[in-house]
């Protein structure tokens, strides 16, 4: 762990994680989840795990968000909680 930057990004990760499960719109939740994945990838790049950060940026933030948005468009954006 190195200094202040990872603490700030860790705070953003927690905020976007809470936002992804509280927003009342599934498309917004999917986009916030993509932001969560990309911030997590930045955190891993800071920690020195560059290979894991590459994989997370392509697979986690890329493919997962695309799959989620596709699933939301095939079902519904409505959510009650």
């Amino acid at each position: 762990m190195s200094g202040q930057l990872d603490m700030i990004i860790l705070l953003f990760v927690i905020i976007s994680g809470i936002g992804a499960i509280t927003v009342r719109d599934l498309l917004g939740a999917a986009i916030l989840f993509g932001a969560y994945s990309f911030l997590m990838c930045l955190l891993w790049a800071i920690m020195g795990a560059v290979d894991v950060a590459f994989t997370e940026a392509s697979v986690g933030a890329g493919v997962s968000t695309v799959l989620f948005v596709a699933a939301v468009f095939r079902t519904t954006r409505r959510t009650k909680d």
């Binding site: 762990m1 994680g17 992804a20 499960i21 599934l26 939740a29 989840f33 969560y36 994945s37 997590m40 955190l43 891993w44 920690m47 020195g48 795990a49 894991v52 986690g60 997962s64 989620f68 699933a71 939301v72 079902t75 959510t79 009650k80 909680d81």
Partner: peptide, 27 residues
């Protein structure tokens, strides 16, 4: 959460938290 998509997001957040713990043990 009652919504199935929210449950799936929660499952992924759980997984990435565990991955983050392992990566921080390597640093």
């Amino acid at each position: 959460k009652k919504n199935l998509a929210k449950k799936i997001i929660g499952m992924n957040i759980f997984q990435t938290a565990i991955i983050l713990f392992y990566i921080s043990t390597a640093a």
